[in-house]
């Protein structure tokens, strides 16, 4: 395995609902990344469809075997490509998904587990949640994918790190919110802090790729970055504009960081498992009253 590799962050502005146009842009940017010597390009969440697809879900959804998807997969001969779309399963369930394609094959497909359905978000109305986090082998070591809100749950990166991920790939559609902060958007500051903590606690490289552009007044801030396992942002894209940013990822750093601060080594998943089992039993017991009480309550 190479000691370093060049990654490209494809901070695009997708066209809402126009899969063909977005596929073309992905292919064009992948070609540019290849010219710049990148071995991997990562595109944002729902880069093939736009974010707030709402009732367009039915029009933009694609099964993995669809020619639109396979064109991008086929383009991954000498450049690994991570891209995101609305996936339609054989059962006609719809998912926010991202695919890892390499050597002309789809190596992994992650379905977004945590669908924000509160405040300005409404994902759970249109799509089904994924049910697992799993790491997978790549030529840069084991990797795991998280889609935007997935990373706002502590357990997701934890599970991927335990599953052996050295690299967390994080496509996002994160809105530009809160302009009070001197440093930048409030949402941007939060992502930087959150992912710095994950990188340092789990000893992982993180590729955060956020889209730009506006949808009905909601702007997405961009600001994609590469974070090293020591918490350093080694490359960062500008806000509010499309950008193809490349960075050299030093894979040897992970070895030294994990030796120096062996937090992952000292994790105790069996303790977590036992505690969760006990907690689940207790929770179920308190959520559902004992049989006698329930029957008592139902009596007219």
């Amino acid at each position: 395995m190479a000691r370093t590799f060049k990654v490209a962050l494809g901070q695009v502005r997708p066209v809402l609902g126009d899969v063909a146009a977005n596929v073309e842009k992905h292919l064009a940017w992948a070609a540019r990344a290849r010219e710049e010597g990148a071995s991997l390009i990562v595109f944002p969440e729902l880069g093939l469809t736009g974010y707030q697809v709402q009732d367009l879900t039915l029009d933009v959804a694609r099964p993995p075997a669809h020619p639109d998807i396979q064109r991008l997969v086929a383009a991954s001969q000498d450049l690994d490509i991570v891209f995101s779309f609305v996936e339609e399963s054989d059962e006609h369930l719809f998912y926010v998904a991202c695919a890892y394609a390499a050597e002309g094959r789809m190596v992994a497909l992650h379905r977004k587990v945590f669908l924000p359905t509160y405040g300005m978000f409404d994902e759970g109305r249109y799509v089904a949640p994924g049910r697992r986090f799993a790491a997978f082998p790549t030529r840069f070591g084991r990797a795991g994918m998280l889609i935007c809100e997935d990373a706002w749950h502590l357990t997701s990166p934890y599970l991927l790190a335990l599953d052996g991920a050295h690299l967390l790939i994080l496509p996002a559609s994160s809105p530009a919110r809160s302009v009070q902060d001197e440093e930048g958007f409030g949402s941007q500051s939060f992502w930087r802090k959150l992912l710095e903590v994950y990188a340092r606690l789990l000893g992982v490289h993180i590729l955060f790729v956020n889209r730009v552009g506006f949808e009905d007044g909601v702007g997405f801030f961009g600001g994609s970055f590469v974070m090293a396992p020591d918490g350093e942002r080694i490359a960062e894209a500008p806000v509010l504009q499309e950008a193809l940013v490349t960075a050299e990822v030093d894979l040897t750093l992970l070895r030294r960081v994990r030796y120096t601060t062996p937090i992952l080594r000292d994790e105790k998943p069996e303790l977590v498992l036992r505690a969760l089992e006990r907690w689940l039993v207790r929770r179920d017991a308190s959520a559902f009253p004992a049989r006698d009480e329930a029957e008592e309550g139902c009596r007219p």
Partner: peptide, 24 residues
């Protein structure tokens, strides 16, 4: 204090908003 805005960032956001929504 909480109503203080970063005026430069707000301007960048709003001008990008105007350009993109109008041109789209």
């Amino acid at each position: 204090r909480r109503l203080q805005i970063n005026a430069a960032l707000t301007t960048d956001t709003l001008t990008a908003f105007l350009r993109e929504e109008v041109e789209k």
